[in-house]
Design a protein around this nucleic acid. Structure first.
Lengths: 135, 135
DNA sequence: CGGAATCCTTGTAGATACTG
DNA sequence: CAGTATCTACAAGGATTCCG
């Protein structure tokens, strides 16, 4: 029954894929989702989808990220294969970050989700207000 | 600047929407994303998209969630308007959780992202292996 | 059955200072 | 400029116990 991974698929099947493995690390889908779901990862992917940026440019672009979190998140994105890091041996050195092919392919579904958030944030805010009012 | 929400949009525009506001809580898009991005939220939304479930059923369905996290995550999903909670006054009482219209509309882009993860988890795993090997 | 309350451990993230 | 190192604070999350 598990010979070939066919193209997707029913809600039940995609849900089963998310519960594969006994725990979180054993489930490939949740493992990948975890890398995408970080606090800063989506934001940086969206930024780099527009065009490549240097470290300092990214810092200025994202107003409230610390340099520690920027370094760390970019490293995780590199490790997962979404981001390419290119060093220019100038002085002082500059480093340019850009999306890989894998990163660009991941951008599309992420974009859909961000777009949904943009279109529905008022509905969510209203739901929260209503919930808090009667609680 | 905040009069009308236009329909989307370029990469640059959607990215700008993610950096609106001076910090995280002030940005509506990131605020909504944060609610979707929880460790267990996507999994529960995917499960409830298939059909409504009772509390105990969800516990058994998600093998490695604690009851604390299940309670807490379901509460957050209710508060954001994604999930409806229906109490049946039987004895002992039973509680059924289901997606709201808002939850169902959010499911679609989420589904796209999970589907991407399902199709590309091997590429991500390979990227990690390669990165760790040369590091 | 479906939680709430408590305790305790771990992870996440900020501030600051220093380096090639 | 683009990081690294350390130290600290707080939030996320697990285990256990109790309740209507």
């Amino acid at each position: 029954m598990d010979g070939k991974i066919v193209n997707l698929k029913s809600k039940l099947e995609i849900y089963k894929a998310m519960t594969a493995g006994a725990n979180f690390a054993d489930c490939p889908v949740r493992d990948v989702m975890r890398g995408i779901n970080g606090k800063w990862s989506p934001l940086l992917v969206m930024a780099l989808a527009e065009k490549p940026y240097r470290f300092g440019e990214l810092r200025r672009l994202v107003p409230d990220i610390s340099q520690r979190m920027l370094t760390q998140t970019l490293l995780e994105l590199q490790r997962d294969g979404y981001v390419h890091r290119k060093v220019f041996p100038t002085k002082p050195p500059s480093v340019e970050y850009s999306l890989t092919d894998l990163g660009r392919s991941m951008f599309h579904p992420l974009y859909q989700l961000v777009q949904w958030a943009e279109l529905n944030h008022e509905a969510v805010r209203d739901a929260r207000t209503a919930f808090d009012a009667q609680a």
